[in-house]
Design a protein around this nucleic acid. Structure first.
Lengths: 89, 89
DNA sequence: TCTGATTTGTCCGTATGTATG
DNA sequence: TCATACATACGGACAAATCAG
């Protein structure tokens, strides 16, 4: 059961908003919205797109950083990590 | 993994443009585009070649000045430093 | 001496994005 | 939600010095 990359945040769902967003972003990366090495949407854009607080968006990103799927560069943005065993650039 | 001397600036990359340019210039010097004691391209030329603001170009040059790879002469240009332990002039 | 082109030096303001409270 | 701070990037403007003619 894959998560819908185009899903929206459901504040009434059992899963907390930040976990929902983490799953959505994960699905969007898998779909190819942002290629490895490229920046995902900025925090400001995600705040506007999903109607969440900045702190919530940052928490969602932190989940993906924790799992090594993305990495944040200070004063630059959040980037999709390169796949471990995949085709070279 | 050597940096490509012919690379272009990628504004979407994690590395900031001025750092990218610093690496490119470093690679070009190593390649021999400009010999030790010779002036590298002027700030204006670099602005045109790489599509960056002059302040960004200057910041990139500052990186190389900081590391002693080049030195700037006011109203003259930026020159490639002589190699520390190399053949004399 | 003068003029114009070139080059670096310096400052301004605006915008974006993250970091923090 | 709001505010502030910091780093980065861009664009513009002007100054000062150099050099060629």
């Amino acid at each position: 059961m894959a998560i819908d990359p185009d899903a929206e945040i459901d504040h009434g769902a059992p899963l907390t908003p930040y976990r929902q967003l983490a799953e959505i972003l994960r699905a969007r990366i898998r779909r190819g919205d942002w290629a490895p090495g490229r920046a995902i949407a900025s925090e400001t854009q995600l705040v506007q797109q999903y109607g969440l607080a900045r702190s919530t968006v940052r928490r969602a990103i932190a989940v993906l950083v924790e799992s090594g799927e993305v990495f944040t560069v200070p004063q630059r943005g959040t980037y999709v990590a390169e796949k471990p065993s995949s085709e070279a650039i």
